[in-house]
Design a protein around this nucleic acid. Structure first.
Lengths: 117, 117
DNA sequence: TCAACGCCTTACCATGAGGTAATGCATTAC
DNA sequence: GTAATGCATTACCTCATGGTAAGGCGTTGA
């Protein structure tokens, strides 16, 4: 079986893979070598393995171009993987953060319940 | 060292822990026993370990009440853990999905770029 | 054609994570 | 006080994961 689905949540559990996704969001179409250059402490084949994990999770796709291979984020895959989860949590947050906001405005002396707005 | 930060992304990588979070969103204040009842295939101490992982990641908090212990989601912690990441990806999605939409309307014959809508 | 390049693939290893079982420790009930 | 309950903690096992090293294969350029 070449095509096991692979859990996207497990894919983003690794900091290196999250960093790869960030890099691919900033500059799409990066090659393995260009990505590997951002991780001096890792060997190229390690990056390749991470990319395969991301591909197996449906988060990135690769396009062959000559002897290079350009990776970019699979927008649809990313949405399919996390869209449902995020929207569910967002509706939860909408309620939860409302309550936090109420508490914060009611009591101005405890401002750091929610860092980052 | 009792307080190692613990990566929240690693915490939600496990399906059991994601399920626990969902349950705590539906009914807050569940005890370990009540949660364990939802996982017949697991032993109670396993659930306890998962809860400790979620606590270490700052995603849930426990409130002692008699000899029970009520767990609930740490709203601020959840936001601190994922808020930044999600908002960044959302702004990306806003662009990316726009492009998908453009591509879909421009070329009606390639409809399955985005599964799930 | 042949060598160099770029990436993938395949062992292989060390570490960490998920699971169970057993023990410890409060708290409640008798 | 004693027993039972509810959960935490510890020890232990197994398997998955992240990492390296080495070899394979297609592509490019001379």
């Amino acid at each position: 079986m070449p095509d096991e689905p692979a859990d996207p949540f497990r894919a983003i559990a690794d900091p290196t893979r999250r960093r790869i996704l960030e890099l691919l969001m900033e500059r799409r179409g990066l090659t393995v070598g260009e990505l590997a250059a951002e991780f001096p402490e890792l060997v190229t084949s390690g990056i390749s393995k991470h990319l395969m994990t991301l591909r197996a999770a449906g988060l990135v796709v690769a396009v062959k171009a000559g002897r290079h291979q350009h990776y970019r984020i699979d927008d649809g895959g990313l949405d399919a993987a996390f869209g449902t989860w995020i929207s569910r949590y967002e509706s939860y947050w909408a309620n939860a953060l409302d309550k936090l906001h109420d508490a914060a405005t009611a009591d101005r002396s405890a401002p750091d319940n929610a860092r980052r707005t």
